[in-house]
């Protein structure tokens, strides 16, 4: 079965790109192929214009579930990535502590994941990803499991972190507002087999905060994307029947 087909897009360094689409459109498959966790049946992924044998070192991954290890405290959880990459344990944990301090999460360093709220756990998971210093971050619906209010707080927090550290981010979401609020560019995918149907540039100023959500400019972009999405859902439903 083909999950995605005929997909082409490029992302500039330091850019924040969001992919939206109906559920089951192969968004996660696209990320896995991009990150080099699955081989594509055909096609290439270029990094700085060349095909790279092992793409994994370029990408940092973050998922909807925080994937923190319940048996390790927050500091050790944040250090996991570095330790697996071969940084000596002491140094990895010191650097984990540093980044926790930088983002004011150090008071949780000795806590276990279960003792933190969902939003806090997601921040910790993001610290773990950030600490590995990968050039591109792949975020697979990172706030999908959070309640609406926590999600908005987390979105602003993520923007703040991104503005400070400026990694390249590819975000997958089915939340159109989230995509527009965060990204420079929104790519819309079709239902299976997933293709890129449309691309929308988000010309909203930065830095942004939640007040942008109620501006007319925001709503115009939102309307444009939603209309296309509804058309796409209707189309795929007709195809099923």
């Amino acid at each position: 079965m083909v999950a995605i087909e005929d997909i082409g897009f490029s992302v500039k360094a330091g850019e924040f790109v969001a992919l939206v689409g109906p559920s089951g459109c192969g968004k996660s498959t696209l990320l896995n192929v991009t990150a080099g966790l699955m081989p594509p049946t055909s096609g290439d992924i270029l990094i700085d214009g060349v095909v790279v044998e092992d793409r994994r070192p370029y990408f940092g991954y973050m998922f909807q579930s925080d994937l923190l290890m319940p048996w390790a405290d927050i500091r050790k959880n944040v250090a996991l990535g570095l330790e697996i990459l071969g940084t000596p344990r002491r140094e990895a944990r010191d650097r984990a502590m540093e980044i926790l301090r930088e983002f004011e999460l150090d008071q949780f360093a000795d806590k276990y994941p279960i003792q933190l709220s969902g939003g806090m756990r997601q921040r910790v998971a993001f610290m773990r990803t950030l600490l590995c210093n990968r050039s591109v971050l792949l975020l697979d619906e990172p706030f999908g499991a959070l309640d609406a209010l926590t999600r908005s707080v987390m979105q602003e927090w993520l923007l703040g972190v991104w503005e400070r550290t400026r990694p390249t981010i590819i975000l997958i979401t089915h939340d159109v507002e989230e995509a527009i609020f965060l990204a420079d560019r929104v790519l819309m995918m079709t239902a299976r087999p997933g293709r890129i149907r449309k691309e929308v540039s988000v010309n909203l100023g930065r830095p942004r905060d939640h007040s942008v959500l109620t501006t007319p400019e925001f709503n115009i972009i939102k309307e444009e994307i939603l209309e296309e999405l509804f058309r796409e859902v209707a189309r795929s439903r007709n195809n099923d029947e």
Binding site: Y61, S65, A72, G81, I84
Partner: peptide, 29 residues
């Protein structure tokens, strides 16, 4: 251990031994 966790470890190029003793074994205890 969840599939996503294994993806995460794979994205860090973790060896089978690292996956086993850092994550799978503690999770299994």
């Amino acid at each position: 251990v969840s599939r996503d966790m294994l993806y995460l470890l794979d994205s860090l190029s973790a060896s089978r031994w690292q996956v086993l003793h850092r994550v799978k074994f503690p999770a299994a205890l």
